[in-house]
């Protein structure tokens, strides 16, 4: 007699969880938007034997560009149609050590002239075959955290209940320097915003807006076209 109501309520809870999950997945996907702006200052083209290096800016005191994001942009540029040769950031910085550390890296395209006057630096740059140096700077900010989730654990088991939501804004700038002309040839900005949800009905179901991944994909695609002169 006691078993039936429990089964019935469990079925309702399970259906409710599935429905909420579906709704939230739909909301989560539809609530991410990305804007890309391009500002070109010079002509670009890339030969098959030339390569690009993507570097993260780490001079700011309150934030630093994540190496994961820089790596993501590099990987996306190196795959698919019109793939280009991208030197991995860590490999380049280690090979150029100590010229591209946070305190010693050039801040303006004009500073490259002084840097390339060092024969050891110029030689290494030629070995890599670098035509363009891309400086990526930015971060992801989380705002508007609302809701609450409480979890309890007891001898009979545990569970969580509640709802949380927040907004993520990933804003990244990419400045493209021409290593040959020692000039800034353009800037691309990618701004992705998205709402994330965390409903918890016994088990928390994170529905994360993938703003950084979207910003990375769009920035990489735009950069690839930019350096190819398209």
């Amino acid at each position: 007699m006691r078993v039936r109501p429990v089964d019935f309520s469990m079925k309702i809870i399970s259906k409710l969880k599935a429905s909420i999950g579906c709704i939230m997945v739909t909301l989560g996907v539809s609530c991410t938007s990305t804007t890309v702006d391009e500002f070109r200052q010079g002509a670009t083209s890339l030969e098959s034997d030339e390569s690009v290096v993507i570097l993260g800016r780490r001079q700011a005191s309150d934030f630093e560009t994540k190496s994961d994001f820089v790596e993501c942009v590099g990987e996306r540029m190196g795959e698919g149609e019109n793939a280009i040769s991208v030197i991995p950031e860590r490999e380049f910085i280690d090979a150029m050590f100590p010229w591209f550390e946070p305190r010693t890296a050039p801040l303006r395209a004009g500073d490259l002239e002084q840097l390339l006057a060092e024969d050891v630096v110029a030689q290494k740059m030629n070995e890599f075959g670098i035509k363009y140096m891309v400086w990526v700077e930015g971060f992801t900010e989380t705002t508007g955290r609302t809701g609450s989730i409480s979890c309890t654990v007891g001898p009979g088991g545990g569970g969580c209940f509640g709802f949380g939501t927040w907004e993520d804004d990933a804003n990244f700038d990419a400045r493209v320097w021409d290593v040959t002309s020692l000039k800034n040839v353009g800037t691309i900005n990618a701004d992705a915003t998205g709402q994330s949800y965390l409903p918890a009905l016994v088990v928390p179901i994170p529905l994360i807006a993938r703003v950084e991944t979207n910003a990375c994909n769009r920035l990489a695609a735009q950069l690839k076209d930019f350096v190819n002169g398209e």
Binding site: A95, M96, F97, P98, W99, E118, D119, V120, V121, K124
Partner: peptide, 8 residues
Amino acid sequence: SFPTPNIN
């Protein structure tokens, strides 16, 4: 680990 500096 630390890379070898690329200096004169």
